[in-house]
């Protein structure tokens, strides 16, 4: 069972690697931020899998903190964009 959990974790890691393409290609800030959020969600899933695979319950707390603080990043992002009128998204960076 532990091998199965690790295998699932590795599959999710591979997903993260694929998602990196969006961070690098962009084109807009929102695209990149969405990827960061995907990183957060997938990372939490990997942490929970690791907690089972390694029988380390403390990792669940780490996952909990991740989930809570990921919201903060999005909230901070909306405040940087929303405080003035949106300018057309620049192409590339």
């Amino acid at each position: 069972m532990q091998v199965f959990y690790l295998l699932l974790g590795a599959f999710l890691l591979a997903n993260l690697a694929a998602a990196l393409l969006r961070v690098i290609r962009g084109p807009g800030t929102a695209d990149r931020l969405m990827t960061a959020q995907l990183f957060g969600t997938t990372g939490v899933a990997v942490l929970l899998l690791l907690a089972e695979a390694m029988e380390a319950a403390a990792l669940r707390d780490t996952a909990l903190v991740f989930v809570l603080l990921a919201v903060l990043i999005v909230a901070a992002f909306t405040r940087t964009e929303g405080t003035e009128e949106r300018r057309p998204a620049g192409k590339g960076s």
Binding site: L16, T35, F39, G43, L47, A56, A58, T62, F66
Partner: peptide, 21 residues
């Protein structure tokens, strides 16, 4: 930010949940 997340996973794998947290 993604790097920090990956590092947290690495600390988790090294059985250092305090550092991961």
């Amino acid at each position: 930010i993604a790097f920090g997340l990956a590092m947290a996973l690495a600390w988790a794998r090294m059985r250092a949940p305090d550092v991961a947290l």
